[in-house]
Amino acid sequence: MEIRINLDVMMARRKIGSAELAERIGITPANLSILKTGKAKAVRFTTLMALCHELQCQPGDLLEFVDDEPGLGET
């Protein structure tokens, strides 16, 4: 069970590089790398907002909930 970040996919669609995106949203390339590799433990709303603004997408395009455990209705 995890939240997967599909930032790579969206960046490829928008044809934008890591360094440029990091500069546009005002975070360091190292932090963008943490976000891309899924090592981040939390994402600020301001960062998410800046990402959505620059990539012209919705939060749901960037974040995906992957559920590999049975929920309440699936027991």
């Binding site: 975070i27 943490i34 981040a40 433990k41 939390a42 600020r44 960062t47």
Partner: peptide, 8 residues
């Protein structure tokens, strides 16, 4: 601290 460092 680790959690804060990994909050982007």
């Amino acid at each position: 601290k680790d959690e804060l460092d990994l909050t982007i």
